[in-house]
């Protein structure tokens, strides 16, 4: 008798837990329902295509940031990386060809990630240190991008890869979204099914416990920072392709948009908790929200206000439902 009651309670708890956990997903579904009611355009093929191509740059950055945040750090250098990757790939192409330029910026991304990681490892940095150090590195990179381009936007020369990113696609899905999906799939599998992924959670949940059980915390975090810089490079390539020019200020504010998307998805800022799927939901939420706000006819400032308020409300309701549960 008692056992059946217990299992029924447990069942109910389980369902409620799932529901509470799915807050951002429910919000996304709700938002899409509202969108399709408000505007007949919303569910059209063209509009969905637009949403997918608009979230890609944000999405890749958010994927990388997810790794960094789960492992217990923070990366404010991604904006600088994005700007620098864009201007470098455009600037290097005429003299070295596109392939070399591409390899160079990818190497640059990995290098910056390693530099961030090694720096933080040397000083045994904590969460706060990762904010300040990556902010400093990001500031430097943004300035280098401005210096390299003399502060002007640089026009893209033709290359097959960039024009594929701009116009191409697979089965009606824009190429940038395809790249985003591939990145998401790879990062999801690593995070979910490999030792490296489990170490990420361990390092973020408690650096001390992880260290004393033999997890190389700083190496894991360095890998996370490399992922995030690499994703920002991919974001820079997408941005460059989509705007057909590389702006040295393309990445200004990028890091904060990315953090917002990851946090809305439900990945914890204090580490050890989160997933790629959550982040994708968060990114979709931001993308759909922006789209709906535009369809409603809000001006850019009004969109900013609405976006800030809606995200805030989402965070509050999510938190309240969770505290009701516990």
């Amino acid at each position: 008798m008692n056992a059946t009651v217990n299992s029924a309670v447990r069942e109910r708890m389980h369902v409620r837990f799932l529901l509470s956990d799915a807050g951002p997903l429910l919000a996304l579904i709700l938002l899409m329902a509202i969108g399709s009611m408000i505007s007949p355009v919303f569910l059209s093929k063209g509009n969905l295509y637009n949403i997918l191509s608009q979230i890609a740059v944000l999405g890749v950055g958010a994927l990388g940031m997810t790794y960094v945040m789960i492992s217990g750090f923070f990366d404010l250098s991604v904006g600088g990386v994005l700007s620098l990757a864009g201007v470098l790939v455009v600037g290097l192409q005429p003299s070295f060809g596109f392939t070399v330029a591409l390899l160079a910026v990818v190497a640059m991304g990995v290098g910056i990630g390693c530099a961030n990681g090694l720096l933080l490892r040397t000083i045994r940095g904590d969460f706060g240190a990762s904010i300040m150090i990556t902010f400093g590195v990001g500031t430097i990179l943004a300035a280098v991008a401005l210096l390299y381009s003399n502060g002007y936007s640089m026009t893209v020369q033709y290359s097959r890869f960039l024009s594929w990113l701009e116009r191409g696609g697979v089965a009606g899905i824009p190429a940038v979204a395809v790249v985003l999906m591939i990145c998401a799939a790879v990062l999801h599998v690593i995070l979910r099914y490999t030792v490296l992924g489990r170490y990420m959670y361990l390092a973020g949940a408690s650096a001390r416990v992880a260290l004393s059980s033999g997890v190389p915390v700083y190496t894991i975090r360095t890998i996370a920072l490399c992922m995030s810089a690499l994703m920002a490079v991919i974001g820079g390539l997408m941005e460059t392709a989509q705007t057909a020019s590389a702006s040295p200020v393309a990445g200004v504010g990028y890091e904060l948009d990315v953090v917002a998307a990851v946090a809305i998805g439900g990945t914890s800022l204090s580490g050890g908790w989160g997933s790629v799927v959550r982040t994708i939901v968060g990114v979709l939420l931001v993308g759909v929200l922006n789209n709906v706000l535009i369809l409603v006819g809000l001006s850019t400032p009004e969109q900013m206000i609405a976006q800030g308020l809606i995200i805030l409300v989402a965070l509050i309701t999510d938190r309240q439902r969770k505290s009701n549960l516990s």
């Binding site: 917002a260 946090a263 900013m304 965070l315």
Partner: peptide
């Protein structure tokens, strides 16, 4: 929001930052 709901101050102030930036642009016609 930070003290009572235990929301992370980084994220909360990130949101209010968007709001006040928007309000400033709105008030000044950009």
């Amino acid at each position: 929001l930070v003290a009572r709901l235990h929301l992370n101050s980084f994220v909360v102030t990130l949101c209010t930052m968007f709001v006040f930036n928007g309000l400033a642009l709105l008030l000044s016609d950009s």
